[in-house]
Amino acid sequence: MTEPKITQLQPMPDDWQRALAVVAHPDDLEYGCSAAIASWTDAGREIGYVLATRGEAGMDTLEPANCGPLREREQRASAAVVGVSSVEFLDHRDGVIEYGPALRRDIAAAIRRHRPELVITLNHRDTWGGVAWNTPDHVAVGRATLDAAGDAGNRWIFPELGGQGLEPWNGVRWVAVAGSSTPTHAVDATPGLERAVRSLLEHRTYIEALTDEDPTKGRMTVEEYARDFLTRNAQAVADRFGGRPAVAFEVFGR
């Protein structure tokens, strides 16, 4: 029997200078694609982060009023490890983000502020590869980001943004979705993997709470857990990217 041919992933487009990553929570990018971001900032590209929430509902042992500021600090430190200094929070409520015009408007405004050519977000589908159910926050923010990439360029959608000095930006050329079960492109993870591990480790308080709740994860140190998670994910893509560990994206052209 002939072995099925493995569909190879294409290299990510590289003729761009500015990108904006839009996700729901602190740590979403660190679990999803920070090895790629580290490589891009090394190449002199400008990348900003926009988070819909401060992750304030993410830890059962810590009240939201205390959790939100802590996770914001961890996110800013995490972004700095991979060369990102611009980190914004939209202050939607963690756990109950609603897809709709308000979320689209906030993301469209961020796109107009940053004027990126590439927009990055996280898996917007109902499941992670049909195996695990996705969270409503990820679905809402991912879907709204795909839509807002178009909204940002239309002056008659959310015309109030023009009155705030945010002129339309129709320069988004691609939206890249990390964590997709149907990726099309990839970035070699090797140059940025060590910094991706360190970046994830900046979320130490959150990871410690997460691993304490899961006995299978709790058998590892925080360092072992972070390295194992990111290395396994990168290696899982290697057979579709010339044998190289990689970060995969589903890329939608515009």
Score class of each variant (00 low, 15 high):
Ala52Lys: 07
Asp212Asn: 11
Tyr49Trp: 10
Asp214Pro: 00
Val222Met: 04
Gly44Val: 12
Ser34Met: 15
Leu103Arg: 08
Glu208Leu: 10
Leu20Asp: 07
Ala248Ile: 01
Ser86Ala: 15
Asp239Met: 04
Arg232Met: 05
Phe249Trp: 05
Arg244Leu: 13
Val251Asn: 10
Ala19Gly: 15
Leu200His: 07
Thr182Pro: 00
Gln17His: 13
Asp94Trp: 11
Arg71His: 08
Gly142Ala: 12
Ala236Asn: 09
Thr135His: 14
Gly142Glu: 11
Arg113Ile: 09
Leu103Gln: 05
Leu230Gly: 07
Pro101Gln: 13
Phe249Ala: 02
Arg244Gly: 00
Ala149His: 00
Ile157His: 04
Pro183Ala: 02
Val119Met: 13
Thr205Ser: 09
Ser199Ala: 15
Gln75Arg: 08
Arg73Ala: 12
Ser78Asp: 03
Asn66Gln: 14
Val96Ile: 15
Gly32Val: 08
Glu98Leu: 15
Asp137Gly: 09
Ser86Thr: 14
His138Arg: 13
Gly153Pro: 12
Arg45Met: 01
His138Lys: 13
Ser199Asn: 10
Ala38Cys: 14
Thr216Ala: 12
Pro191Ala: 01
Val251Ala: 09
Tyr31Glu: 00
Asp126Met: 11
Asn154Leu: 12
Asp42Ala: 15
Arg73Asp: 04
Pro64Arg: 15
Thr7Phe: 01
Thr182Arg: 05
Gly171Met: 00
Leu193Glu: 07
Tyr225Lys: 06
Asn233Gln: 08
Gly150Tyr: 11
Arg18Thr: 15
Gly142Gln: 11
Ala144Leu: 08
Ser199Gln: 10
Leu51Phe: 11
Gly130Ser: 04
Arg112Phe: 09
Pro215Lys: 04
Thr205Phe: 01
Ile157Pro: 00
Glu3Ile: 00
Met1Trp: 04
Glu194Met: 06
Arg71Glu: 12
Ala132Tyr: 11
Ala144Met: 06
Leu146Gly: 03
Ala24Gly: 07
Ile97Ala: 12
Ser180Asp: 03
Gly142Trp: 14
Val96Phe: 13
Trp128Met: 12
Leu201Tyr: 01
Asp91Thr: 07
Gly130Ala: 04
Asp94Asn: 11
Tyr99Asp: 14
Glu117Gly: 14
Gly48Pro: 09
Thr53Glu: 03
Val237Tyr: 03
Leu146Asn: 00
Gly32Thr: 09
Ala109Gln: 02
Arg227Ala: 13
Val87Phe: 06
Arg232Pro: 00
Ala36His: 10
Val222Ser: 06
Val177Lys: 02
Asp239Gly: 00
Arg173Ser: 10
Leu103Ala: 07
Ser199Pro: 09
Ala109Ile: 05
Pro191His: 08
Gln8Gly: 02
Ala57Cys: 11
Ala178Leu: 01
Gly142Thr: 11
Glu250Thr: 03
Phe241Glu: 06
